[in-house]
Design a protein around this nucleic acid. Structure first.
Lengths: 337, 337
DNA sequence: CTGAAAGCGCTTACAG
DNA sequence: CTGAAAGCGCTTACAG
């Protein structure tokens, strides 16, 4: 039961509460023999530390807040759920509990969480340009890390997949196979306009790398974020009959793509070479049969939590900006011209 | 700053800590005039209650734990993320914070959360037959509600969409339009075998209702949970050329279906009438153009949190089992024969 | 190496 | 109607 306290353990072990506390928090100040008695007593009584009491005494919550992106109706992010799992898993492994915040107003949620001392730090999911949460965590002095890169001068740690590198790798791979006319199927226009970070970073790096290789890269924006974009896909292919390859950076488009291409009678890679950027979990679930960069959500989340943990430990250390490299998996959907 | 305590507020207002506490917790024992002074002082100082201290004093956490289903690689549940949002939103509105638990071993996670007094209650997502978490919450005395129906004698509150009713409505609708040979495209076999609750309930109710109408209902199990099942879908249609209608109860199949049907040259509803069961959020995002039952995740989550809240308030009240009705939306994909 | 004691910031009978 | 005081279960200097 939850009724057993440190006092009971102390009595059972014949020592003081202080000694129990030291042993249980892993201090090595206590003689091993005593420590053993204490551990035995704790085990026998089924003791668990009362977290509220510990929080009050230490002013630490051992909890991180995950601030999810606002819940946009109609925008069904496929990576989101995966990231929530990965973050929670990584947090647990790092010794933290995870509190989930889905408030439309992230700033207000942050303010309240800090005011009531609910969390030691925050993961800010899906930052975008001018994200008000950045200013908020700075003002609140809340150790935080963004999932996605904030602007360099944000003053907040950032971790994300290295989308620039992914873009370069993908473009270079196509170039080396002789492709000179390539389509980049991306996100809806508004996401670039709003400056949604991964979208912009990938696109700009791809364009730069394409220029470097003398490759014509045409960006096609999906007209909405959902599956309907299959129609856009086919339109894009018709409008660009000379394209020999296509890079898809859009989960939702990905989902219907296999069927769409077959429907259109497009043979991959015979008629068209295809590369994708896709969260690994989606790849497994959907048996994505294309060469591309698999984004390992667990790895990104693990790095984010680690960076956050260090920030919590050393609030004044220099700002960290970490890009996680993701490997290119060759599934044979690119052919040489 | 978080540094201002009840003591500061008391000083500022010229009253005792007790009085401040009473005012802030909404007790009406305090004269309105005093209360106003206190509130003004609290506002002026920017006071927020220290949650750890309150938890320790009251033995309540004002936090609910959401115990997510195990993270199955390759199983990409589309409703899952939506439910996490909806639950967190509903919890916040009910005055709770939300702690997210994704441990593979839910029982262990429950034990720890209760032992360390982290939560007042739990939402158990995706219960299935013989779910060990049910026994665990009973033993731990943890107020809980399942999202999805547990067995009737589980002793744990349950809330879910009324899938039986949804199945009956859908079958009845087809029957009234003269359909006598219908396909039910469901979940992978193993989900029925494992007794995954909503899958079984929908299927059995549909079968029963079909019998009642003298309708031949053939269940087609998707061979995997992901988009690949488009292939199964077309196979099923070929094997059952006499079927005049199809009910799809499988998010993943849904996603590719639009394309698949076009690819197969199947006109809806000319050649085939189609009904679906789909989370409303997916419907919006993916513009699902089929008649069917839209599952309102927010509504289900709101009910679940409400039931849990009452259970926390009255641990000994009779077990509640609540089914949320979801309306049939007619989008014209069923024709009369 | 161990224990007595103060303190974390609240809440809540209990007196008045 | 308000305040003094005990108590929630820990942690952590500080003495010894």
């Amino acid at each position: 039961m939850g009724k057993v306290t440190i006092k009971d353990v102390a009595q059972e072990a014949g020592v003081s509460k202080a000694t129990v506390s030291y042993v249980l928090s892993g201090s090595d100040l206590i003689a091993e023999k005593t420590a053993q008695k204490v551990r035995a007593a704790a085990a026998k009584l089924g003791y668990s530390v009362n977290h509220a009491a510990r929080m009050l005494a230490t002013d630490r919550t051992n909890t991180i807040g995950v601030f999810a992106p606002p819940h946009r109706a109609g925008y069904f992010s496929l990576s989101l759920g995966g990231y929530l799992y990965s973050l929670s898993d990584a947090a647990r492994e790092a010794g933290y509990d995870t509190m989930l915040f889905t408030d439309g107003n992230g700033v207000e949620a942050l303010r309240k969480a800090v005011g009531t001392k609910r969390i030691d730090g925050a993961v800010l999911m899906e930052v975008s340009e001018g994200d008000e949460r950045l200013e908020a965590v700075r003002r609140l002095g809340l150790p935080s890390v963004t999932l996605g890169m904030s602007e360099p001068d944000s003053g907040v740690d950032a971790v994300d997949t290295d989308f620039e590198s992914a873009a370069r790798v993908l473009v270079r791979n196509l170039a080396s196979h002789g492709h000179r006319d390539v389509l980049l199927v991306g996100w809806p226009e508004w996401m670039y306009a709003k400056g949604v970070n991964y979208a912009v970073r990938f696109r700009e790096a791809a364009e730069a790398e394409a220029r470097r290789h003398g490759m014509a890269l045409t960006v096609v924006c999906a007209r909405n974020e959902a599956l309907g974009s299959a129609r856009e896909l086919s339109a894009a292919l018709h409008e660009h009959p000379d394209a020999t390859a296509m890079i898809v950076h859009n989960d939702a488009v990905m989902m219907g793509m296999n069927q769409t291409l077959r429907e259109l009678g497009v043979d991959v890679p015979g008629d068209l070479s295809v590369e994708v950027v896709v969260p690994d979990q989606m790849g497994v679930g959907m048996r994505v049969p294309y060469t591309g960069v698999d984004i390992d959500l667990d790895a990104v989340a693990e790095r984010a939590v680690d960076v956050l943990k260090r920030r919590i430990a050393r609030p004044d250390r220099p700002v960290v900006r970490e890009l996680v490299q993701q490997p290119l998996a060759d599934l044979g959907s690119v052919r040489s011209l």
